[in-house]
């Protein structure tokens, strides 16, 4: 296991979480560096979503401390954005794509006159410029997830927490969104990305943390020394990619045995 990092941006120390009398996470130490893309993988029930919710300030640890940029995290912060897997439940069905982005700016107190430009700008960044007037149900799954990402962009976050964001999408849409996320995050954003797809984790991440079950704990941490910007074809054929995938597959097999 890695020693605690000096320059941890998100810092989870000595975390234990008990939910409804059941231990969900035990002795979790996790540090995310500033500007890092950290992927967390693990089987269902390993507490990876709980880990993300801790970092979001949506769950409090039973024991241990969560801090962000040196300050203890006591609840949600506007500079931490969360992308949920179930975009259908996370978007406001009574507002158009435009309105779904607007609500964030309204809450942030952005002046009315400044909103339209900023809304069109973030919608354009996720390729929804032409769909501003559509309601979420009129958009495909991939477009709805893009809209949720646009809504987070409007928040101007320093940290992105993404909970299996592409888990409900078909393979082709998923690949397109993976590449778009790499593009969007290439500005030095800090990302904690939860997934159960280990190829996705290696392709996107700077580091991959593998979790185990009963109760959830961090089992392994792997560095991903693949060059950026990453090209899908080249990365998936890179010997280092294949080696990491092998290591993680072996780990999963061991864990299941």
């Amino acid at each position: 296991m890695h020693a605690p990092l000096e320059n941890a941006y998100i810092n989870l120390r000595g975390i234990n979480v008990v939910l409804g009398g059941k231990p969900v996470l035990e002795n979790v130490e996790l540090q995310v560096r500033r500007g890092e893309f950290l992927c967390v993988i693990g089987p269902s029930g390993c507490g990876k979503t709980t880990l993300l919710r801790l970092a979001a300030g949506l769950v409090n640890p039973t024991a241990g401390k969560v801090s962000f940029a040196g300050d203890e995290l006591s609840g949600p912060r506007r500079d931490i954005a969360v992308v949920f897997q179930d975009y259908g439940d996370a978007l406001l069905p009574w507002r158009t794509a435009y309105g779904n982005v607007s609500i964030v700016l309204e809450t942030l107190g952005v002046a009315r006159a400044e909103r339209p430009d900023r809304i069109h700008q973030v919608l354009a960044r996720v390729g929804l410029a032409k769909h501003a007037d559509k309601y979420p149900q009129q958009l495909s799954g991939g477009m709805q997830q893009r809209l949720q990402i646009a809504r987070c962009l409007a928040q101007g976050p320093r940290v992105w927490l993404m909970d299996e964001p592409f888990g409900a999408l078909d393979a082709i849409t998923r690949q397109a969104l993976q590449d778009e996320i790499l593009q969007i995050m290439s500005d030095g954003s800090t990302v904690l990305f939860v997934t159960h797809d280990l190829e996705e984790a290696i392709y996107l991440g700077d580091r991959v943390v593998a979790m185990g079950v009963n109760p959830g704990h961090i089992a392994r941490t792997l560095d991903v020394p693949l060059p950026r910007p990453r090209d899908r074809q080249a990365t998936f054929e890179h010997p280092e990619f294949l080696r990491l995938r092998r290591t993680l597959l072996d780990f999963i097999k061991e864990a299941e045995a």
Partner: peptide
């Protein structure tokens, strides 16, 4: 629940949450 979580993630106040999330939903 996701809508409520969304509103608390952007730190929406109680009245705004009422007017813009809970009542429309």
């Amino acid at each position: 629940r996701r809508l409520i979580e969304f509103s608390s993630l952007i730190r929406m106040g109680l009245l705004e949450r009422m007017a813009k999330i809970i009542l429309p939903a």
